[in-house]
């Protein structure tokens, strides 16, 4: 009972924190509105107009398809990048020599601007899902990889020794002691990677003319429809928020209950 009650309490606290979210959004809208009033409708449409336009876009089923296409691409790229990065990162974390070998490689990969990858993948895969997924893979994997490796390397070795004394084998030790410590590093990186996936997906779609939200944005740009463009931006941000709060946050909250216990009241929510 205590378990369920605790979870319910956390859910309630989390839902209640929606108010502070609303406050932040309202502040942003205020600044936006001020900008709108200073520069006029053409440069910056008002937030309300944008929101109305976004809702209008959602009324048409083909726009849902566009949004779902982008989400599918972003998520598939994210899952690929997350799995690959986490696996490689953890493996490399346990082998310091490999870490030394992979660090310069990472610098090289991170140094290549994402735009360049889009151009390359466009040539390799054409205007398809693979272009978008590959671009996401290249730009999001390194940060997950680094987080995984760091998580393993900064783990508390004393806990490993403790588990060994009580008879845990290497696999058991990793699962019960190592993994939790890796997750503490990995989850923030995954949240970041998810955001990157969405951004890169839209950018890749726009440049590769591969449909989805990016394609819609390209069309709006061609028609100089600022309100429409902003509406699409708003929709993609909302999609990201939905995915992040539906996917990453619950897992993180579940794993980090003990951290929450140590936080002062004001930060807790």
């Amino acid at each position: 009972m205590g378990f369920a009650g605790d979870r319910l309490g956390r859910l309630g606290r989390f839902a209640w924190s929606g108010w502070s979210g609303l406050a932040a959004v309202a502040l942003l809208a205020a600044v936006w509105q001020a900008g709108h009033e200073a520069y006029g409708d053409f440069i910056l449409p008002s937030p309300m107009a944008t929101a109305t336009a976004a809702i209008g876009l959602l009324a048409a089923p083909e726009n849902w398809t566009l949004l779902l296409i982008t989400m599918r691409r972003a998520l598939s790229g994210f899952f690929l990048a997350g799995t690959l990065g986490a696996l490689l990162g953890v493996m490399v974390g346990y082998a310091p020599a490999m870490m030394r070998l992979s660090r310069p490689l990472l610098t090289v990969v991170l140094g290549v601007p994402p735009i360049a990858w889009i151009v390359l993948t466009m040539i390799w895969f054409g205007a398809s899902d693979a272009t978008v997924a590959a671009t996401i893979l290249v730009s999001a994997t390194p940060m997950v990889f680094v987080a995984g490796a760091e998580g393993v390397m900064t783990r508390d070795r004393g806990l490993d020794a403790m588990a060994e004394v009580f008879g845990a084998g290497p696999i058991r030790r990793f699962l019960s002691v190592g993994l939790r410590q890796v997750c503490a590093h990995l989850l923030p990186a995954l949240a970041l990677a998810l955001g990157t996936s969405f951004k890169v997906a839209v950018m890749a779609e726009l440049l590769a003319n591969a449909g989805g939200v990016g394609g819609a944005l390209a069309r709006m740009r061609a028609m100089l429809d600022i309100t429409g463009a902003l509406a699409w931006v708003m929709l993609s941000v909302v999609a990201l928020v939905v995915v992040e709060y539906g996917l990453i946050r619950p897992v993180r909250a579940e794993l980090e209950r003990w951290r929450e216990a140590a936080q002062p009241w004001g930060v807790k929510r």
């Binding site: 004393g158 020794a161 403790m162 588990a163 009580f166 019960s176 980090e256 003990w258």
Partner: peptide, 26 residues
């Protein structure tokens, strides 16, 4: 055998009961 270390070496993500139960789980 069991060992008590100089520092407690508890798993921070488990409650006291969970920590005591850890070797039993193993």
């Amino acid at each position: 055998h069991a060992m008590v270390f100089q520092d407690p070496r508890l798993l921070p993500w488990r409650g006291a009961a969970g920590n005591i139960a850890y070797p039993l789980e193993l």
